[in-house]
């Protein structure tokens, strides 16, 4: 197979439209949660600009600088957030889906860029930026959407798979893999294996102290082992493309890495990064797989089901920590209510 054919095979392989639809729902839900988290800071910054009390320095990221964007006041920032909310809602239910996803991406990324331009840039939303931006490049509204329902009413033919459906998923996968790999390789390039001497990680854990830091630092051998674990998971992550079965190692490994850094380094949940690891999963088959494994009855297979659901527990924990109780209850209730019909729709659409 030539390089060009390999390229096409990677980016344009026939892929399930239902998978892409689930991906859209996940990414936009994540975008909504992220908007909730960032809107407060963005509005506070904007209000401080209006009031002339902004203490932070405006150091725009390249894109905003190139576009000549100045810090927004409260009214325009409210407009951007309002448009983002409408676009997210439209994208989520799948109405004018690709346009809605494009608008949501622009607005959400602008809010993030505005906040970053007043402070420090973070890595947790690098892959997320590519995930939400690339949704509109694929037929993300072809299933589980109002657009699909309208198309069926018009009698338009439906196919189960499409060549354009892979691109948003693949771009996110590659972005994640590059992020992890360069994080590991840069440590080795700058400091060599000495980076894993245990003291280095011990210092970071103490510097960004959180609930588990002191326990994990109880002996340098433990921090050295964790350092090697981090280097291996990060530095070799791209192998997941060569040996897809390694998803069973890298995905839990990466989630564990982020949970540990959250509770030991106070990085925050980093959910906008690790939840995107779902791009490596055949999302449309997950419910059936879970049900089949559970019904199989053997203890190891049921244990695998429970282990596979662990990230969902972490998501619930993040929601519990970050949302007010009423909002958590509302989201949980809506999720419980919407899941069954969504699964039914998903099965019907395949």
């Amino acid at each position: 197979m030539s390089l060009a054919e390999r390229w096409d095979d990677f980016w344009f392989a026939e892929t399930s439209l239902v998978r892409l639809a689930w991906w859209r729902i996940l990414v936009l839900a994540l975008a909504a949660l992220d908007l909730v988290a960032y809107a407060h800071t963005a509005l506070a910054d904007a209000a401080a600009i209006d009031a002339g009390t902004q203490m932070k320095t405006w150091t725009p990221i390249y894109v905003l600088e190139a576009l000549g964007v100045e810090p927004l006041g409260l009214a325009p920032m409210r407009c951007v957030i309002a448009v983002a909310i409408v676009a997210l809602a439209a994208g989520w239910v799948g109405w004018r889906t690709r346009t809605a996803c494009a608008v949501a991406a622009i607005c959400c990324l602008f809010v993030t860029a505005h906040v970053y331009s007043f402070g420090k840039v973070h890595h947790d939303k690098v892959s997320f930026a590519f995930a939400i931006s690339s949704l509109a490049l694929g037929p993300c509204g072809a299933r589980l959407s109002i657009d699909a329902w309208l198309a069926r009413r018009r009698g338009e033919g439906e196919s189960e798979r499409a060549s354009g459906a892979a691109l948003p998923l693949r771009l996110t996968q590659l972005s994640l893999a590059l992020g992890y790999a360069f994080a590991g390789w840069t440590k080795l390039a700058v400091s060599g294996v000495e980076w894993a001497n245990g003291y280095t990680l011990m210092r970071y854990l103490m510097q960004y102290d959180n609930a588990w830091s002191r326990f994990l630092c109880s002996h340098v051998a433990l921090t050295a082992a964790l350092s090697w674990g981090a280097l291996v998971v990060q530095g070799t992550f791209p192998l997941v493309f060569v040996f897809p079965a390694l998803r069973w190692f890298y995905l839990p490994g990466a989630v564990a890495f982020h949970v540990i850094t959250w509770f030991a380094m106070d990085t925050g949940p980093y959910m906008t990064c690790w939840l995107l690891l779902a791009s490596f999963l055949p999302l449309e088959r997950v419910p059936e797989w879970l049900a089949a494994e559970w019904r199989a009855g053997s203890a190891p297979r049921r244990a695998r089901v429970i282990a596979s659901l662990a990230p969902a527990a972490v998501v619930a924990l993040v929601a519990w920590v970050s949302l007010p109780t009423w909002a958590f209850v509302a989201v949980a209730a809506f999720g419980a209510w919407a899941l069954r019909p969504l699964l039914a729709l998903s099965r019907a659409a395949m």
Binding site: H123, F182, A183, T186, K187, V190, S191, E194, Y199, Y204
Partner: peptide, 11 residues
Amino acid sequence: VGFGMYTDVAE
């Protein structure tokens, strides 16, 4: 962005 953070070694 690059990944130069957390790269220096502690003795």
